[in-house]
Amino acid sequence: MPNGVAPVIRAAGLRKVYGSTVAVDDVSFEVAPGEAFGLLGPNGAGKSTTMRMLGAVSARSGGSLEILGRDPDRQGPEIRAQLGVVPQLDNLDTELSARENLIVYGRYFGLPHAVVAARADELLGFAQLEDKAKAAIDDLSGGMKRRLTIARALINEPRILLLDEPTTGLDPQARHILWDRLFRLKEQGTTLVLTTHYMDEAEQLCDRLIVVDHGRIMAEGTPAGLIREHSTREVLEVRFGSERNAEAAVALADLGERVEPLPDRVLVYAENGEHVLAEVLRRGWDPVTSLVRRSSLEDVFLRLTGRSLIE
């Protein structure tokens, strides 16, 4: 976080308990203005629960939270007026057209019709949905709905945009269009907070992120920093067939800083993957397939939790 800039979000020891379930447990982080901050974690990690507390629609069970210098327990509506929210599940109004969705939603903030009507047309352009202005919501594709939801979240010119899994369920092309729109917002200085369980999305979009699991922060840093800290530069992936993977992992254990036997492949973490591969072959282990790649956040997550991000 840049020194000297007051954070727009400050969470310390944040907790949320539902009955006997601790959904969020002692989570602390700060987000600087203009930053793109990510929450990366598997299903049930507590990402949405955290986002709902940030969005001032869910009261925290413990800890302290400050959004734009305000306490959501006391100034919920003032905070919500300055947020844009893209929930995990689309909740566009199916009784309204695309353009009406923007206008009606803008009115919820008490903005005058003339203002929201002008912004609606601008935002339809931003979301590349000009020709869908009159379309019914049910006639839009998943990617279009997501873009419209983002456009809707921008109608009140929010200072912070909260995006809960913005691209889950979209095909690769639709995801890239969406990422491009989010980059633009970032360039314009909008603070982005997003959750995802896609490591590539986190690497692409986030300046900084926390890795969460079971409601707790496992690690925090920039994508590159996290990879440097928790993984090696490269990874060799070798497959020997499901019966032999475990055996191979033992035999090759000394070749890398770390060797991870997965059911379908063996991962060898090393600075130079090609060198390791050459040694594997020299020792007479002939893999069915092999691949040398750079370490990713997926490897960081595997290292920290012993599990894959996407089950």
């Binding site: 001032a56 306490d71 959501p72 006391r74 919920g76 009784e95 206008i103």
Partner: peptide, 26 residues
């Protein structure tokens, strides 16, 4: 009544308006 659960921003009209706009399409 304050905070997260604050009851009103004095803008019930916006909710009424949503139905008015929706009714045009029905």
């Amino acid at each position: 009544a304050r905070g997260v659960g604050a009851l009103s921003s004095g803008n019930a009209y916006a909710v009424f308006n949503r139905n008015l706009v929706g009714a045009r399409g029905t």
